[in-house]
């Protein structure tokens, strides 16, 4: 056993650009095991981009990400991800049960059929989210809150060590919101690490132990009480640093594939 356990999530000097326009610039973030972290920032601040970069869905232009001390390609198998609702095709021909079972694939293997135990476990996860009666519904036939709970049940079924959730509270009813909060706390108490993209300032300190303030760059990271103050929030929501984003854009042009050819 290593004396110093690897961190669940370590982001170093991360820069991400869409079409050569940087969205995140030089992010450094280290998240300790067992923390419940909220990522706060205005629209377009790069919150979802950060999560997507960790998930390997966007290739960073600079810097690296480590998950439990491994590269994010390897470490990603220990991550459970709850996607943003808009990114799902709700007409897809799967039932709620099918979706939750997908979370078990990592445990049964890619080619084997699901065992009885997997099905029971998936049903338990659904039950925990009070969704067992809807197990055979096609996912498009559920309300927004129910859909969100299905994906949380899937995350539960994955039994991951690190959870990344992209706006799980967006467009859900009050009951679901409370269910999600309880689930988050329960997972945290089990020693899991959870990172949640959040946009509601009024609930941020109640829901999360740690907050990361993000707007193009990381403005602050620390315990909710320490970070959630007027000064830092002003910095976060007070608009971008124009020089930084302009120069960042210039830098992205430097990173174009043509110039890599001659490095």
């Amino acid at each position: 056993m290593n004396s110093k356990l690897p961190l669940p999530l370590e982001i170093h000097d991360l820069t991400v650009a869409y079409q050569k326009k940087p969205v995140l610039y030089g992010i450094d973030l280290e998240i300790q095991e067992g923390s419940l972290v909220g990522i706060l920032g205005p629209n377009g601040a790069g919150k979802s981009t950060l999560i997507k970069a960790v998930m390997g869905m966007i290739r960073p232009d600079d810097g690296f990400i480590k998950i439990f001390g491994e590269t994010n390609r390897k470490g990603i198998t220990r991550v459970g991800y709850v996607p943003q609702r808009e990114n799902i095709d709700w007409d897809f021909p799967v039932t709620a049960m099918d979706v939750v079972l997908m979370g078990r694939i990592g445990h049964t293997g890619w080619f084997k059929r699901f065992s009885k135990r997997d099905r029971i476990f998936a049903a338990e996860c659904l039950d925990q989210m009070n969704m067992l009666p809807y197990a055979d519904r096609q996912i498009g036939n559920l309300s927004g809150g129910q859909q969100q709970r299905i994906f949380l049940a899937r995350a539960l079924a994955q039994q991951s060590d690190l959870y990344l959730m992209d706006e799980p509270f967006a467009g859900v009813d009050a009951v679901t919101e409370q269910t999600i909060v309880d689930l988050l706390k329960q997972l945290r108490n089990q020693g899991k690490t959870i990172v949640v993209v959040h946009h509601d300032l009024s609930t941020a300190t109640d829901y999360f132990d740690f907050l990361a303030l993000l707007n193009f760059r990381l403005i602050a990271y620390g315990s909710s009480g320490a970070v959630f103050n007027h000064d830092l929030l002003q910095k976060t929501y007070g608009g971008k640093l124009t020089v930084l984003s302009e120069i960042g854009e210039k830098k992205m042009n430097l990173n174009s594939p043509e110039s890599r050819l001659f490095k």
Partner: peptide, 19 residues
């Protein structure tokens, strides 16, 4: 201005200085 840590800015400046 952008609240980065002092030990993290060198690599970035290495590139920015030219442009």
């Amino acid at each position: 201005e952008a609240s980065y840590a002092a030990d993290h800015v060198h690599d970035d400046a290495e590139k920015i200085e030219h442009i």
